[in-house]
């Protein structure tokens, strides 16, 4: 149960980082990554995955 960021399409805009309720997202060499151990797919917090809702790049964040 986790999402992942496809690094090759990530623009590094950082929009996803602050919206995650679980602090699962951090920067790593210019792009962002999700810690699968922390990601709950937002279940229990919000109806939709917050990082997916805010990410400006289509299909950049997908189910792992």
């Amino acid at each position: 149960m986790a999402y992942k960021i496809i690094g090759s399409t990530c623009s590094g805009c950082s929009a996803c980082d602050p919206v995650c309720p679980n602090e699962a997202i951090r920067e790593k060499s210019g792009v962002f990554i999700i810690d699968p151990a922390k990601c709950t797919e937002c279940v229990g917090h919000f109806d939709t995955a917050q990082c997916v809702a805010v990410c400006p790049v289509d299909r950049c964040i997908v189910k792992a």
């Binding site: 623009s11 805009c13 950082s14 929009a15 980082d17 602050p18 805010v54 400006p56 790049v57």
Partner: peptide, 13 residues
């Protein structure tokens, strides 16, 4: 760098 809307005249790259 983060944005909260998408504009049709913008490419976030």
């Amino acid at each position: 760098p983060a944005c909260n809307i998408q504009c049709n005249y913008c490419n976030r790259k």
